[in-house]
Amino acid sequence: MSKAFTKFIISPRNAYFLSAGTLLLGLFLPTPLLTSPTVASPLYKQETSSSSSCRLVRAATSCYQINVPATYHFTIQVPKNGRPLQAVSIAQKDNAETIRFDLSKNRAFIGGSFAGGPELPLASIGGSEVADPSVITVVFDRPVAPGEKVTVALQAEQNPQLVGDYLFEVTAFPVGSDRAGIDLGVTNLHFDSE
């Protein structure tokens, strides 16, 4: 390694410019390079997950093309040392349009997204927010046991008409939790014209 290159790396002044340049590069990268079209990860969390809190593992769609029916999967891991999970709420956040779901076709199963594990019967779909089409609450007939993964599958009547990222806030309600539940964060699904 040349002396000039070594001097560049260890110079505090150059380290500052390198950090600023990296930050600017991040601002100009197109969004599609930063996100996957069918798999999403949490964008932010309001509270820090602990080892005893549920965790949003994955959000995915069976089809990311606009204007077609699709199934959206939200997979949640219930920790081994946590409380059983009784219900999940999924709310659309400030999207270009509200996606409508066929409540009669929504379901849940034990296991990861699109794995098709054992069906988990639902006690109810909709909850107290049934009047608000942007929020769906799913209550499990039996709580999801600690250490299990559960996937909530929501059947969209059709994907949105407008291309872009659509945000969903996921809240978990363990057995005995307060009304607010545990915020698992906001995740996104990207829909495109092709």
Rank of each mutant, 00 (worst) to 15 (best):
L25H: 09
R58C: 03
L43I: 15
G126N: 06
S62F: 01
V88I: 15
Y64D: 01
I76Q: 07
F74H: 07
A180T: 09
A145N: 12
D165C: 12
T137D: 02
A115D: 08
S113M: 02
V170A: 01
F191N: 06
E194F: 12
S19R: 14
P42F: 04
P42A: 13
L18Q: 05
L23V: 12
P133G: 02
P118H: 03
S36L: 14
G117F: 01
T171H: 00
Q86S: 14
G26W: 05
G127W: 03
P79E: 00
R83N: 10
L56C: 11
S177N: 11
H73Q: 10
E148T: 11
G111K: 06
V78G: 08
N159V: 06
K93P: 00
G111P: 06
E97P: 00
T61C: 05
A180N: 04
V135H: 00
E129L: 03
C54R: 02
A70N: 08
T35P: 05
Q155H: 06
E47Y: 07
V135Q: 11
P160Q: 04
T98D: 12
Q161L: 02
K7Q: 08
R179Q: 12
S124W: 08
S124M: 03
F5C: 11
K93Q: 05
L154H: 13
A145S: 02
A96P: 08
V170R: 02
T61H: 02
V88Y: 09
F173R: 00
S11E: 06
P118L: 04
Y166R: 07
A153W: 05
I9H: 10
V138C: 03
I90S: 04
P32Q: 06
